[in-house]
């Protein structure tokens, strides 16, 4: 397997607050790598710094020090339009609250990243159809987000995040607003995407069940990466148990 690295982050720190004011260090030197085709979970409690980490990874925020490389590009050096273009071509997002544009139909929502890159309509249509098929949402393509269920919304969001073949898919608690069945369905789909289409996924969550879908889990606490778990050949059930045990000791 090609061991190309899609995410490399090195000694990243993030400090909030101005110099002469009360400062708070959210990240205290975080380093890790995600290889192409990996499914990595990042776990941590509220306030552990995982949201800050995801914001920096997804180029929505900048680190105070350290470097962040995505697909070999140092994103900390990008600005303005370059940054926007990078985001729209290299990164896919799924958020807890779906973040769909409710004035657009599912089809239009999914097509948006391609329209932004000025892909011709002829090419857009088959791409949207194919990703919709992968995610099982062909039948609702012409519905508006308000007319479909939460699970379907998140699938639309996932389709939108993947339609332009980004280097990496970031998920920020994507199952957070879903019922357990929809959540399982979404996670199964994500696993399928990862295994069959080699989509690199980085999933941030505090839910052990979601995390158990990952191949590798990084635990973050007080702005630092603590333990790391690898699933290897273990069954998902065993891995889940291992995560629970780890969480139990990790919280102390």
């Amino acid at each position: 397997m090609n061991a190309k690295k899609v995410v490399e982050i090195n000694e990243v720190t993030k400090t909030y607050g101005k110099k002469n004011q009360k400062q708070y260090q959210a990240l205290k030197g975080v380093s890790f790598e995600v290889e192409s085709g990996e499914f990595v979970g990042i776990m941590g409690a509220s306030g552990s710094g995982k949201t800050t980490l995801l914001n920096i990874l997804s180029t929505l925020d900048k680190p105070t020090s350290g470097s962040v490389k995505i697909n070999g590009n140092d994103v900390t050096e990008l600005k303005g339009n370059q940054l926007a273009d990078f985001r729209s071509s290299e990164i896919g997002f799924i958020f807890q609250d779906f973040n769909l544009l409710e004035s657009l139909t599912a089809r239009e929502n999914i097509a948006l990243p391609l329209s932004l890159q000025n892909v011709s309509p002829k090419e857009i249509a088959p791409k949207v159809e194919s990703i919709a098929k992968t995610l099982g949402i062909e039948s609702i393509l012409d519905s508006y987000p308000t007319e479909v269920s939460g699970g379907q919304k998140q699938r639309i969001a996932a389709a939108r995040a993947l339609v332009h073949n980004p280097s990496v898919l970031f998920g920020d608690e994507p199952t957070g607003a879903l019922d357990s069945q929809s959540a399982t369905e979404l996670l199964d789909t994500m696993r399928k995407l990862n295994e069959q289409q080699q989509v690199s996924i980085l999933l941030v969550t505090h839910d052990p069940y979601s995390a158990s879908y990952a191949k590798r889990i990084l635990f973050i606490k007080d702005g630092q990466i603590g333990t790391e778990l690898t699933r290897g050949d273990k069954s998902q059930q065993d891995f889940y148990q291992e995560i629970l045990v780890e969480l139990g000791t990790f919280q102390d």
Binding site: A111, S115, L116, P121
Partner: peptide, 16 residues
């Protein structure tokens, strides 16, 4: 007219 609408944010603007 997809040739018109599927460019940049046009679809979004029209929908807005």
């Amino acid at each position: 007219n997809l040739n018109f609408a599927n460019k940049n944010l046009r679809n979004f603007t029209l929908s807005q």
